[in-house]
């Protein structure tokens, strides 16, 4: 939305915003915690509030057409893109294209955690969506792998929803999250944080039963019983479409008229910086159209 609005303000009037979900806002919709907008709006907002401010601006800019439930499935080197929406397939070739497709979570498989594969292992963002959007509680006794902000925030969220968070296990020597989140998400609820430890094994046949935690230095191990493992071990830009279009390095696409911003360019910690850089992408696209 920031890129579309910036391009609009720079004089581009014929803009289409394509979104696969049934609403705008992206990942912000499930981030109901505060911590957004301190730089951009100089006030502490929750994710949905931050998104709402942009949704209102997009709605006000009448020439920005929004197509929801529209899933882009194909992109070619000459910017021909195809998207599916219920009941239809649309192919078009815009003069400039801005990709802001966000990121996906790294999974348990990518970090090779050995053991069994029962129900109860969730990427933290999926768990966040279940709790905050669907109203589903994935489990009652939780171990969180990874102490980045998402892991910390989910530890608090599960505690507030009545689950017991047994521990957050972090392979590094320091938490990867903000101090504020370590304090307010873990210390407030006396949730232990095991730094310099890793989850070495997941046990359980049908549903998770316990995990084995190993100290990286001493190699000593202990077990934690739990029914759920949340995996919060980082994000990866989602840019398969740009790869499909034939660009070897999706972060620096060498295709004219194609711009990339937000988490699909690189993974950001702060939404304010996503907004700032996405505005630049919108302006660059407007500039490109003037010269083209």
């Amino acid at each position: 939305m920031a890129a579309a609005l910036a391009a609009y303000q720079a004089g581009v009037k014929d803009i289409l915003l394509i979104e696969r979900d049934q609403y705008l806002g992206g990942i912000l919709n499930q981030c109901i915690h505060p911590g957004f907008g301190l730089h951009h709006f100089k006030t502490d907002l929750t994710g949905p509030e931050y998104a709402d401010r942009f949704i209102k601006q997009v709605a006000a800019a009448q020439e920005i057409e929004v197509s929801l439930r529209s899933f882009v499935v194909r992109l070619t080197a000459d910017r021909e893109l195809t998207y599916l929406k219920p009941g239809g397939m649309v192919t078009l070739q815009p003069r400039a294209l801005i990709m802001a497709t966000g990121c996906r979570e790294r999974t348990r498989e990518m970090i090779h955690i050995a053991g069994t594969r029962p129900a109860g292992i969730f990427p933290a963002g999926l768990a966040q969506k279940m709790v905050n959007i669907e109203g589903w509680l994935p489990g009652k006794e939780i171990v969180v792998i990874g102490s980045g902000d998402i892991g910390l925030i989910m530890a608090r969220r599960f505690t507030l929803e009545g689950a017991r968070v047994k521990a957050v296990v972090e392979i590094q020597k320091e938490s990867r999250g903000l101090v504020r989140n370590v304090v307010q998400c873990l210390e407030d609820f006396q949730i232990p944080l095991y730094l310099n430890h890793r989850v070495a094994l997941i046990h359980g046949r049908d549903r998770v039963e316990k995990v084995t935690v190993e100290n990286n230095e001493t190699k000593e191990t202990f077990e934690l019983t739990c029914d759920t493992v949340l995996v919060s071990v980082g994000l990866i830009p989602e840019n398969e479409l740009i790869e499909q279009a034939g660009s070897p390095d999706p972060a620096k696409p060498n295709l004219p008229g194609l711009f990339v911003c937000g988490n699909s360019l690189k993974v950001y910690d702060l939404v304010d910086n996503v907004t700032r850089d996405s505005q630049k992408a919108g302006e660059a696209a407007a500039e490109y159209l003037k010269n083209a």
Binding site: I32, P34, D44, N132, I133, E134, G135, Q184, D188
Partner: peptide, 23 residues
Amino acid sequence: SPMRILTTTVLTEGLDLKLVPVR
């Protein structure tokens, strides 16, 4: 007197989202 902003969700009935986020 430690103070915190609380963010959570409230169930809805007959609206287009199952939960409304609140603080």
